[in-house]
Design a binder for these strands. Structure first.
Lengths: 146, 146
DNA sequence: GTAATACCTAAACCTGACTTTAGGTCAAGG
DNA sequence: CCTTGACCTAAAGTCAGGTTTAGGTATTAC
């Protein structure tokens, strides 16, 4: 059993964050001894899960839901799986969007590289339609910009 | 020249957002006729750029900086390029992080798939160490979780 | 002539995930 | 005894990126 301060040190989190998580219902089984929180294995495990779920872009309220489902037992496996499937699909489309943005950024870097060499944008602007490197060509339509 | 309402329709943005962008200094050259905003080609171009830069995860204040640099002329090419290089690096590391999170999600989906089949987590918990599909094996250490 | 629109402003409000503040309890150390 | 440090609470503050509201002007439509 650990105090909030020990757990904060273990996870490199501010004490205030742990209190906040508790208030949000992320530790449904948390016990107290005369008002003081006592973190056990269940809570440490929960914290590890929370860190994972946050990385996956999940909101606190969804994480709470997940914790509640875990406490409810095997009957909630399908719900839990569905939540992760939905997250996975969301994440995949986010990554696809970010890759498009990344192509755009590559294009911008190339564009300004040329502009710096020339001292102006005239040549590079004229150059774009044919001479654009393959991988960023698709980006051009999105990036018809300075 | 267009009114704010026409531009809002053209870009599918609320009028309030355009006023907000203006207030944030994103249209340094915007003109007015007796108090009313007149959006010209410069502003439409700026809006296209803004949409790109937002996709690239840039904050409003950085976009304003970029707009100001554009207005300053060729001497700011290197600054503009540096801004995009920095963004590019940032984006690449974000994508890498997201891919790690995605692997974790794949692992979770697989895990619950097994748990649903078995009606409990006993077998899948025991199964993990050897039997984990290759691509998500690395993830396991991050996901030593329910 | 009045009602509906489209425009304007400043300022308050919203969301999420925390953080900070203000005020209080309790145990140990000098 | 009294200060320090770890814990507690509720409530307010923070940040970004808008959105909403309240109140005002100006043009067009019936």
């Amino acid at each position: 059993m650990y105090t909030i301060g020990q757990v904060a040190d273990m996870f490199g989190l501010p004490v205030s964050t742990l209190r906040y998580y508790d208030k949000q219902g992320l530790f449904p089984e948390l016990e107290r001894t005369s008002g003081i929180r006592r973190f056990g294995d269940t809570e440490l495990e929960a914290l590890r899960v929370i860190e994972c779920l946050k990385k996956a872009g999940m909101e606190i309220k969804d994480i709470r839901l997940f914790m509640e489902w875990c406490a409810e037992g095997p009957s909630t496996y399908p719900k839990r799986k569905a939540m992760f499937e939905e997250r996975k699909a969301h994440m995949e489309s986010e990554i696809a969007n970010m890759n498009r943005a990344l192509d755009m950024l590559k294009f911008k870097c190339w564009y300004y590289e040329q502009a710096i060499q020339d001292g102006n944008e005239d040549r590079v602007k004229a150059l774009i339609p044919d001479n654009l490197p393959e991988e960023i060509k698709d980006t051009y339509d999105n990036a018809h910009t300075q």
